[in-house]
Each structure stands twice: as structure tokens, then as C-alpha cells.
């Protein structure tokens, strides 16, 4: 009886994983073998290995890499500073606050800020640089994406830094290590787990970004995510969309494996 009850407790989790993780992935793989006319074929896979899609995959990786790198560059010093401030929780709250606002609203706000007659260009004119084309460029795309993803990078790094035993830093100082050496040899290696999970939390969603590619980059940047959205919603070529999704899943598994903690 007791073991029965225990199995029952387990049931919701098993059901959840089956229904919302295993079945969808199987369905995606299943759909990927059907061409636009609904007959079974490997056509979609052949199509993925044409220059168009390979180029798209490559540029998706490149932009996701840029977004992750810049996020890390901004997030690490921020997290480090946060641990040293007096009202940690308040500052943390201020950083998390923008996450409460819907992504689409944030993107629309940037349409106004970066527009030809937006605040950013007013400022540029004020300091004598003159109005520039900001919206619909690579710069604006990476900037907005970094802005959106940076909290996801700060949080795990902040947590890792908080967990760091301060006596270790003191010991390093006592033994004559310079601040830089302390950081490089003690603080950074000990917070590497936080950095890794931060990179995962940014790189993986960045790889499948869409919407921002249209709103902010004006479809001048085409990522795999955009292509999936188009195939499912507009061109109704579910097979091709599913095929791209399969490759995205494979890419994500590889990334998880590479950045995972091997013990």
C-alpha cells in the first residue's frame, strides 16, 4: 500500500514529462519527415543542408555567441559589484524588475527610442555626432537582445558569488596575491558554475530568438527561430519548421553537454 501511494505521488511528474517533454519532441521528429504535400520523405533534411539554411544556422550561432559574450561582459562585473553593495536585495530587485515587463512591450519601446526621431538620435545630435540609422541594424539587434537577457546572466553569477566563502579571498590576500590574481585564480574558478548556467540561460534562447529579429532588426537578421516561426505560422510548411527545430534541439543538447558539470 505504501509503495502504491509513493508511486502515486510520482505520477504527476511522470505525466508532465511525458506529455510536455517527451511527446512534443517525438512529434517534432515525426513531423520533420513529412514534406509540404504531407508525404513521407527526407526532403526537409536535404533542404537543411543547402547553403541558405546552413548560412542561417551559422549566423544564428554567431549572433547568439555575440549576445552571450556581451551579456557576460556586462553581467560579471555587475554581479561582483552587487555582492559588495549595502542594499543587495534592493539592487537585485531593480535589476530583476524589467523582467516583469512583457518582452514585446520592451521591444516596442526600443522602436521608439532607436527611431529616426527617437531619444537616442536626439542625444546623438545634442553631443554633435548627428543622427544615425540605429534601428534595423546589427547593433540595435545585439543591444536589445543583451538588454533582455542580461538579468538571466546576472542572477546565477550573483548566486555563485554569494555562496563563495569570503575566507578564501582573505587567504589569497594574506598569501600575497594581487587583486587580479585573486580574481583569476580564486574567485572566477569558484564561480564558474554560475557563469556556465548563465551562458546556458542566454545562449540557448538567443539561438531561437524571433520577433526581435523582425521588430528591431527589420528581418535583416534571420535566425533559425525566425525561420521556424515563419514555417509554422505563415508558409504552413510544418515539416520544414520541425526539421529546423530538430537541429536546434540537437544544438542545445550539445551545448548543455559542453557547459554541463562533469563530475
Amino acid at each position: 500500500m505504501k509503495s502504491n501511494i509513493r508511486a502515486l505521488y510520482f505520477l504527476p511528474y511522470v505525466l508532465w514529462i511525458l506529455l510536455f517533454v517527451v511527446v512534443p519532441i517525438l512529434l517534432i521528429i515525426y513531423y520533420s519527415f513529412f514534406n509540404i504535400e504531407g508525404t513521407f520523405s527526407f526532403e526537409n533534411y536535404e533542404k537543411f543542408f543547402t547553403p541558405v539554411y546552413l548560412k542561417m544556422a551559422l549566423s544564428s550561432f554567431w549572433y547568439a555567441f555575440l549576445i552571450t559574450a556581451f551579456s557576460l561582459l556586462i553581467a560579471y562585473p555587475t554581479a561582483l559589484l552587487l555582492t559588495k553593495t549595502k542594499h543587495k536585495q534592493l539592487w537585485l530587485l531593480l535589476i530583476i524588475l524589467p523582467m516583469w515587463i512583457n518582452l514585446l512591450l520592451k521591444a516596442y519601446a526600443f522602436l521608439g527610442i532607436f527611431g529616426t526621431y527617437g531619444i537616442a538620435n536626439h542625444f546623438l545630435e545634442l553631443i554633435g555626432v548627428g543622427a544615425k540609422q540605429i534601428l534595423f541594424t546589427d547593433f540595435s539587434f545585439v543591444f536589445v537582445s543583451v538588454y533582455i537577457f542580461v538579468p538571466f546572466m546576472i542572477l546565477p553569477i550573483f548566486n555563485a558569488l554569494e555562496k563563495l566563502n569570503p575566507t578564501l579571498v582573505d587567504a589569497a590576500k594574506d598569501l600575497g596575491a594581487s587583486p587580479w590574481i585573486t580574481f583569476r585564480r580564486v574567485i572566477f574558478p569558484l564561480t564558474l558554475d554560475g557563469v556556465k548556467s548563465g551562458c546556458q540561460a542566454v545562449f540557448i534562447p538567443a539561438l531561437s530568438l524571433f520577433m526581435i529579429t523582425r521588430l528591431i532588426a527589420g528581418n535583416r537578421v534571420i535566425t533559425l527561430g525566425t525561420a521556424i516561426e515563419q514555417h509554422f505560422l505563415v508558409t504552413q510548411n510544418w515539416g520544414m519548421g520541425a526539421t529546423i527545430a530538430v537541429f536546434l534541439i540537437i544544438a542545445m543538447v550539445i551545448i548543455m553537454f559542453l557547459t554541463g558539470n562533469r563530475k
Partner: peptide, 17 residues
């Protein structure tokens, strides 16, 4: 071509973007 957009085209054109 400056951008290829969806419904935002209305707002962008009205704002003389």
C-alpha cells in the same frame, strides 16, 4: 530596403521613419 516588417509598418510610416 530599410526593413521588412509586419503590422509595425503603419506606425513606422506614420512616424516618417
Amino acid at each position: 530596403v530599410k526593413a521588412i516588417v509586419g503590422d509595425e509598418i503603419k506606425m513606422l510610416m506614420a512616424n516618417e521613419e
